[in-house]
Design a protein around this nucleic acid. Sequence first.
DNA 1: CTCAATTTTTCCCTTATGCGGATTAATTCA
DNA 2: TGAATTAATCCGCATAAGGGAAAAATTGAG
Lengths: 401, 401
Amino acid sequence: MKTADPELMRAINRFTVLDKIRRRGPISRVEISERSQLSTTTVSAITASLLDDGLILTRHEGDIRNTAARGRPRVMLELNPDAARVVGAKIATNRIVFALTNFCGEVLSKLTIPVRVDRLPIAVISDLVEDGVRRCVVDAGLSLGDIDTVCLGLPGVVEHRTGKVRSSPVFRETDVNFAEEMTSRLNRPTIVESDAHAIALAHHWFGQARDLDDFVIVSLEQTLGLALLHNGQLFRGAGGLSHNLGDLVLGATLDETVRLSAIAGETAILGEQQASGHFAEAVRLGRGMAHAQALIASRDHPLAAAALRAGEAVGLAIANIVTLFGPPRVIIVGQTLSLGAMFTDSLRQSYAQAIPRSIREVAELVFDESPDEAWAQGAAVVALRELYESPWGTTGPALSL
Amino acid sequence: MKTADPELMRAINRFTVLDKIRRRGPISRVEISERSQLSTTTVSAITASLLDDGLILTRHEGDIRNTAARGRPRVMLELNPDAARVVGAKIATNRIVFALTNFCGEVLSKLTIPVRVDRLPIAVISDLVEDGVRRCVVDAGLSLGDIDTVCLGLPGVVEHRTGKVRSSPVFRETDVNFAEEMTSRLNRPTIVESDAHAIALAHHWFGQARDLDDFVIVSLEQTLGLALLHNGQLFRGAGGLSHNLGDLVLGATLDETVRLSAIAGETAILGEQQASGHFAEAVRLGRGMAHAQALIASRDHPLAAAALRAGEAVGLAIANIVTLFGPPRVIIVGQTLSLGAMFTDSLRQSYAQAIPRSIREVAELVFDESPDEAWAQGAAVVALRELYESPWGTTGPALSL
DNA sequence: CTCAATTTTTCCCTTATGCGGATTAATTCA
DNA sequence: TGAATTAATCCGCATAAGGGAAAAATTGAG
């Protein structure tokens, strides 16, 4: 348990002010004071310090009040985009996507490497990632030294605190300390994070959850992931791990345990088909879901049945998650959404049937097909949040003695 | 978002010190300082204030070091048991149990009213509870004015923040503002809390989780409840609600949704029997589970099958919860445990089968058949925690590092 | 153009906190 | 009895936030 001293106090208030400036665009000191319960004096002191550190900028225009407002005009404050540069990446089994952003999280350059990595040795994957980061930096007209932090988002079970990847479809090995590896390669602080957590923060900053500090992300990619934002903080579970939704058990007979991944995992949906010809090629290249949608159009295709079953299973799982957490919004993301309405309708219907009556209106389901770039941007946001020096740990490991 | 001022700072450190004194029995100032990272000066100042407020006492004995220790002897500090009196209660469908405790959470008097309340009007239930609290107070040689807070734990979905009972097997009505009702009746601040949360705090203070700040409670009573402690704080879900484990969906066919409560709820287990004679009477009086164990002893009794199925279902649900939260310990409590080894073995086996390999060793299952008194004591602890003035909201963000 | 009115921002002062070092207190051992 | 040792407190300092007054920057009326 952390003890409080003036330093912590300052850190907390500094973060609040910085966060207000980020969220409410250009904003005046008075308004920060009103919205944060801090005195104008304190806000002034903190903003002075932020200006001094070059994290924010002043702008003498953009006052939202009546143009004919009397009195001294407000000086608007906004983030200094150039205060930092970070690189975020999404590593998937069949592609790696990079995004370089400024301090505001705006993408300055991006890069996609369409490569199948899931059977490559770690050294080769590391090479690819290192190369991608370097290219992305060059594309933005920068050099690696200008980058403050790098954050890599990847599927599977990731231990954020240590940077260890417990298990992931992109690595053949388990317990890979990928953060350490990349930090020494790039000579820049490198964070490893679950891809679901990355897209969650992307939605929190820019997407469908800007207005919410509590929501759930269900990520339906090759791996089924879960992210849970609680009070604006990622909830990492007691062990500090990311969650693996695919391991959820849907039902079991005496002999057999049916896990969600066995019904709604990518390979489960697409793999049932005797992959042949054009479609097989698409699957191999990671375009399986998109192509599948076309095939499903003919409703009697066996894929249609698989899509229905997958939607049903995910709907059930989401109902259970809502039962446990009661989030106001559940955002469903990932390639599996490319299956189209047949899948999502089935999901919605199964959810509606499974959600208990008493909390039927608690949560709202939202589907979102963000491009890969958004995931990489989300990873960048993870990196930015470390720079913001949030005084609350993202998971708050309480070390009480 | 909470802003920091000196007051918060003091509240945090004061709580830290008070909590250390509670947990570490009689403890000296130096030791508090060592264990809390606070300077001896600060500890001295805070303890002086606590002594001044009468919350702690000094004791000039019990130094744990060598009796032949040199130097000025340490003055041991401990909670002042008389600093507060609270009443906790567990309201179940067929009994109400009260416990009056001191500031340390030690039970001073207790009372059980064996009464079936689940079909009574609220006014009558309120009468019973009011009467029970008053008796319990008198039994302890006190008067109601000596009581600082009352906390009522009951099954179902409880909104702690507002004191509203959304739905509960003990009430026919839904959305009952029970806290308001009892506060005005007793003229004492009265808190309403989920019974699962109450027993969770009981275990945290006195039971199987004294050493842990992260654990999960699964409560198998008439209603299936869940409590989740994260960083020493109850996790109440985004809506501030308690969780209803019974609503979890285990599996579904097209026509039918199978919920946990339909397999492992008390009525589901016992109700399948054509209730007749002696056993039926026991069920009516709430002794069903205990009597069932005797019947199960003859392994071919239909109850045995029900117990097996229930254990299986609960084991599955727990595996899913562990998949999501990864707690180091899961404590399973409640009357259903009276079914005995047949039930618990089945649960363990099903859990072992369902838990993903990668997190197999993460969580440890513990069964605990605490008496009802422990639940009431837990409710009292809920009340005490309010008095301790924890500066973090029960669901608020944890301060890290 | 000047001056009052208005609003934002800063400066000064007070009070709170925690901390480090010196001081006092209480005990053991020689 | 006095030296050594450890515990607890006192004193002064640094830093925080907050309140009120003053300064700054603008508009509008005469």
